[in-house]
Design a protein around this nucleic acid. Sequence first.
DNA 1: ACGATATATAGGATATTTTCCTGTTTTTGG
DNA 2: CCAAAAACAGGAAAATATCCTATATATCGT
Lengths: 164, 164
Amino acid sequence: MSVQIDALDRKILAALQEDASQSLDEIAKVVGSSKTPVWTRIRKMREAGIIGRQTVLLDAEALGLEACFFVLIRTSEHEADWQQKFLHALQTRPEVLEAHRLAGDIDYILKVRVPNARAYDRFYQALISEVRIHNVTALLSMEEIKSTTLLPIEDGAQENGNAP
Amino acid sequence: MSVQIDALDRKILAALQEDASQSLDEIAKVVGSSKTPVWTRIRKMREAGIIGRQTVLLDAEALGLEACFFVLIRTSEHEADWQQKFLHALQTRPEVLEAHRLAGDIDYILKVRVPNARAYDRFYQALISEVRIHNVTALLSMEEIKSTTLLPIEDGAQENGNAP
DNA sequence: ACGATATATAGGATATTTTCCTGTTTTTGG
DNA sequence: CCAAAAACAGGAAAATATCCTATATATCGT
């Protein structure tokens, strides 16, 4: 096992994802510790990959990205090289913000952010010309009710999935 | 109009969302400017809400959140107070990371992160006991192919949707 | 239960960075 | 083409990150 996360780590993670611009002293005060352990733990969790990218969330509309689509994809092809081409296409296109392979009759779901419906169509045409896809349904978002990167962190007693 | 974003602003935004821990001097060098204009522009874009939360992206699996569902919801009710109750339920539940109101025959889509399938069922039971919902389809993610908060920022010439 | 070793913690010193100020250059409008 | 305004570059003081040292806490074998 790489790193075991304890209650203090979880408090630090919660504070960090809430506001990563806080100083170590502020975080230390919030989590009830001092800056050295907070700093050491952050460094270790960064190295372990528990803490990933430090970023800033931007207003998509202000950047002219006014349309958001969820795309449900069914395919008949499940060969290795088809899948590889498909994955590569998704990963290189910056308008694809999320892509998941699913269980069930729908094979993939994408979240795509584009300036407008025309830009979505361009994306769609480019995608289906690049890889063969059986069936596509696009769901257009009318309203972003909620959008957060804040993961729910259990700060209570540690509930462990498997007994020790 | 609140703030007009120019090419330098876009470069700064791109640098920031790529790595928000960079110093002003580093960003200034990358975007080809000096720290004062970079700092002023960041401050203004923060105030204008173009730049939102500064955060850190965490590894959900490392935190024990191993299951991700996309939930497609159809409802027959479209009255104001039903909708308000529904929105409130979504916004207060931390396992709901995204919620969109859609155009078309599916009314809402949610993205839900939970420790496991049992936790999803608890969430689902709690939700349908709180608000009346006509039809629900849960899509289980088997693999997160891509997940990014990096919005595509056109750093070329400024393409404007409406003519001046 | 006790002591020896390992580990975590608190607070302080230095290097870096943010924040703001001052003088200069560039752009804009008449 | 000149005046007014805006943006810019670099520098100084305050705040912060990073690392060090000493102290406290926990762990393990006997």
